[in-house]
């Protein structure tokens, strides 16, 4: 019982379990603990939402319009092209 008491009031432990839950299945005990914590903790409830949103944002960083805005400059590309051409001619 003292274990349960710990988690019910412990946001450090709760956020740890929240992150774990996003990636693997929690043990039965962990599930219960987290659920009990979240019932009474609005801050961690908000954390759950924000954490998921961040995962989503990170996942699509590359797919976003970044792909169109991040470019190598032409000088570097030209140098690269020359290097490749040299290599190809050697063979």
């Amino acid at each position: 019982m003292s274990d349960f008491k710990d988690i019910i009031y412990n946001c450090r432990q709760a956020t740890y379990l929240i992150e774990k839950r996003e990636l693997i299945k929690l043990t039965f005990k962990e599930q219960i603990e987290l659920r009990m914590h979240l019932v009474g903790c609005d801050m961690c409830k908000l954390y759950v939402k924000q954490s998921r949103k961040i995962n989503e944002m990170v996942k699509q960083l590359l797919k976003s319009d970044m792909r169109h805005t991040i470019r190598l400059d032409d000088d570097f590309k030209n140098a690269l092209q020359t290097q490749i051409d040299d290599q190809l001619n050697k063979n």
């Binding site: 960083l61 590359l62 970044m66 792909r67 991040i70 470019r71 190598l72 590309k77 690269l80 092209q81 490749i84 051409d85 190809l88």
Partner: peptide
Amino acid sequence: DPKNWVAMYADYLFAYTIT
């Protein structure tokens, strides 16, 4: 077709790396 690699993939690979 390595002659076209820079034109085709350089920006993509760069963006992939920088993220």
